[in-house]
Simulated assay, not measured.
Amino acid sequence: MRNTIPSWLRIPVVFFIIVLLIEYFVESGDQPAFMEQPAILLFLLLVLLVLIAIEAIAGSLSNILYQSLDDAGKARYDASNQKESKLVVWIKEKYIKLLGSKPIQEEHEIILDHNYDGIKELDNDLPPWWLYGFYASIIFAVIYLFKYEVFDGDSQFDELDTEYAEAKIAIEEYKRTAKDLVDFNTVELLTEASDLNNGKKIFEVNCIACHQADGGGGIGPNLTDTHWILGGGIKNVFKTVSEGGRDGKGMIAWKQSLKPAEIAQVASYVLQFQGTTPAQPKPAEGDVWKEESID
């Protein structure tokens, strides 16, 4: 009896085994990437075990059914399984035709005179896949020679420089859209209404108790004048909100509870108080701060 387990069950099993082996033996680093994600590894192992179990059950049922047949039924079953599909037959016929090989009854026509201890050699043509692959390699070599040696095509160093430039552009684009990557050095003043509205909400929840709703100050300093204890401008205000005020007194470090994007929003909102008139302004603290002009 031939193996009757369907290939759609065997192939996934082999596939998962190969994936696991490659991941384990080829992956660089101290340990395979799969080992860093136990959930994925366990899931793949579970799927592998399920597929193996299904194939085993299917094989057992097939053998049981086969053994229940009489001799005539077994013969018919074996004969039906030995028939190849039309597609397989067509592929074999085309391959043999391309190969140009002789059937065994006509091999005497292509026997060479070479004789090694009774072993004779046939003058068969090379397999088409090998022959066409050889022709393709020649064409590739000619094109490669002209491109890189005659017309001075890009070298590996040029390609590396191009990839570096493309990667730098991609990183800058990612930083531009990923607001939570902002820090003291890259933060910019936000002016969009959505950012300022969100900054206002954060200010009302966390900052009113010390600075008042109009920024006039209370426990904390006045945010409406030109005096700043730790420096004004978006970069300094962002750093102050993120890292906190002076040691031993002043504001806590909000980086523990606010995301960088949220700190940028509230810092931009705080700067909106500049030049306004609060109801009960607190006396100025710190030094007058002016934005440094870039010539």
Rank of each mutant, 00 (worst) to 15 (best):
E27A: 08
I64K: 01
S7V: 14
Y144L: 08
F15M: 13
A253T: 03
D295Q: 12
I5R: 08
I111C: 04
K255Y: 03
Y132T: 11
N185M: 03
D70Y: 00
F134S: 13
N206S: 09
P278N: 11
Y95I: 09
L20H: 10
H114K: 11
L190H: 01
W289K: 05
L112D: 03
A53K: 06
F43R: 04
Q256K: 06
M1R: 02
I104C: 06
G248S: 08
V288N: 13
G29K: 08
N197Q: 13
A39C: 00
I229R: 10
L230P: 00
R2M: 08
L258H: 08
L145M: 10
E262D: 15
S68L: 01
F134A: 14
I169Q: 11
T276K: 14
K94N: 11
G286A: 05
H211R: 04
A284C: 04
V182C: 04
S257C: 04
G233P: 01
L196T: 05
V19L: 12
L145A: 14
L49R: 02
I104V: 15
Y164N: 10
A178S: 10
V88G: 00
V89E: 12
A39I: 15
G215T: 03
L49H: 02
G73Y: 00
I252M: 11
D123W: 10
L48M: 07
K83G: 10
T191I: 07
D295R: 06
A193V: 14
D214S: 04
L98F: 13
L41Y: 05
E27F: 02
I171V: 15
T276H: 03
F238A: 05
K74H: 00
E192F: 02
G232T: 04
V88T: 12
Q156H: 08
K74D: 00
D71L: 06
P260D: 02
A33W: 12
V142G: 05
L122F: 12
